[in-house]
């Protein structure tokens, strides 16, 4: 229901807030599933930091989404086909919670049985992330660093005035509550 509201709402500020609510609900769901690490990540990153960054971008961009005219039938078609294929694929999934599932018979039991004798770390998730799957985690750390570098590369250049002769793009929608400063130009990425 929250997801539908996110799609429907035109006010980007409200959409950002709804995303935070969505993340918080997901975090609650993960808590119910006993996945403490994932829940903590979802609450901190999804509900916390992404919302702050979305708001920081919104301070630069316009608050209301452009209305797009009409409906895109091709997009609807593609979405329906993809959804149907995904639903069809779920029919082949193994039964939920069955002991012979690949998730239960592959490396999982080894980690569960060996992680404490191997390293004496009670939190199995930390053991898997930092030791068994250490190289993956290093890759993630490098990805974070690269994301920081990318934002730095895009935003460290000081903004310049538009060249004369080019008319700044005006918002198509009404510009309620928009300061003149925000109307003129928004940065290349949102």
């Amino acid at each position: 229901m929250v997801a539908v509201a996110i799609v429907r709402v035109r006010d980007l500020f409200a959409a950002g807030m709804l995303f935070a609510i969505y993340s918080l609900l997901s975090a609650a769901l993960f808590t119910v599933l006993d996945a403490g690490d994932v829940a903590l990540t979802e609450a901190a990153v999804g509900a916390g930091i992404s919302t702050i960054l979305v708001l920081a971008v919104l301070a630069l961009a316009r608050r209301y989404e452009h209305p797009t005219g009409g409906h895109n039938l091709v997009a609807l078609f593609v979405v329906i086909i993809t959804g149907a294929v995904l639903v069809y694929a779920t029919l082949d999934l193994p039964e939920f919670g069955h002991p012979d599932n690949p998730a239960q018979v592959h490396v999982g039991p080894h980690y569960i049985e060996q992680s404490y004798p191997d390293m004496g770390v009670p939190n199995m998730v930390a053991a898997v992330l930092a030791s068994y799957r250490s190289i993956d985690t290093m890759g993630e750390a490098f990805v974070i660093f690269a994301a920081g570098l990318a934002v730095f590369a895009l935003l460290s250049v000081p903004p310049r005035r538009r060249q004369s002769g080019i008319v700044p793009r005006r918002p198509l929608s009404d510009s309620r509550e928009d300061e003149p400063a925000d109307e003129k130009e928004k940065p290349d990425h949102e």
Partner: peptide, 15 residues
């Protein structure tokens, strides 16, 4: 305390 309870570098850094 990430070794004993849920947590770790990512979450801690973000918080």
């Amino acid at each position: 305390h990430g070794e004993y309870s849920p947590g770790g570098g990512f979450q801690a850094g973000v918080v």
